[in-house]
Computed example of a mutant assay.
Amino acid sequence: MAETPEPIRFDTKIAVLLRHDLASWQALNVTGFLVSGIATDKDLIGDAYEDADGTEYLPMIRQPIVVLAGDAEQLRAAHAKAVARELPTAVYTSEMFATGNDRDNRAAVRAVRRDDLDLVGIAVHGPKNAVDKTFKGAGLHP
Rank of each mutant, 00 (worst) to 15 (best):
R9E: 12
R9H: 13
F10R: 02
K13M: 13
I14S: 00
I14R: 00
A15S: 11
L17C: 07
L17W: 01
L17Y: 02
L18P: 00
R19D: 03
R19F: 06
H20G: 12
H20D: 15
L22N: 01
L22C: 03
L22R: 00
A23K: 07
A23E: 13
A23Q: 10
S24W: 15
Q26A: 06
Q26Y: 08
Q26G: 12
A27D: 09
L28M: 13
N29V: 11
T31W: 07
G32W: 05
G32M: 08
G32F: 07
G32A: 09
L34F: 12
L34A: 09
V35D: 03
V35S: 02
S36A: 06
S36P: 07
I38D: 01
I38C: 03
A39F: 04
A39I: 05
A39Q: 03
T40Q: 08
T40L: 14
T40A: 10
D41G: 08
K42R: 13
L44E: 02
A48T: 14
A48L: 12
A48E: 14
D51E: 08
D51P: 05
D51C: 14
D51F: 07
A52I: 14
A52Y: 09
D53Y: 04
D53E: 11
G54S: 11
T55L: 09
E56Y: 06
E56P: 09
Y57G: 13
L58V: 13
L58G: 13
M60H: 09
I61P: 02
I61V: 14
R62E: 14
R62S: 13
Q63L: 09
I65Y: 01
I65T: 02
V66W: 03
V66D: 03
V67G: 06
A69H: 05
G70E: 02
D71H: 03
D71N: 14
D71W: 03
E73S: 15
Q74R: 02
Q74C: 05
L75I: 12
L75Y: 01
R76P: 03
R76I: 13
A77Y: 02
A77R: 02
A78I: 09
A78R: 01
A78H: 01
A80L: 14
A80F: 06
K81R: 14
K81F: 08
A82H: 02
V83S: 11
V83C: 11
A84T: 07
A84R: 05
A84S: 15
R85K: 13
E86F: 10
L87A: 04
L87C: 05
P88N: 08
A90R: 01
T93I: 11
S94E: 11
S94G: 08
S94C: 06
S94H: 10
S94N: 08
M96S: 00
F97V: 09
A98W: 15
G100E: 05
N101E: 07
N101I: 10
D102Y: 15
D104V: 10
N105A: 09
N105M: 12
A108L: 05
A108M: 07
A108N: 05
V109A: 06
R110H: 12
R110C: 12
A111T: 04
V112S: 09
R113N: 13
R113H: 10
D115Y: 02
D116F: 04
D116H: 09
L117M: 11
D118M: 08
V120I: 14
V120E: 01
G121Y: 00
I122A: 05
V124K: 00
H125Q: 10
G126T: 01
G126R: 00
P127V: 07
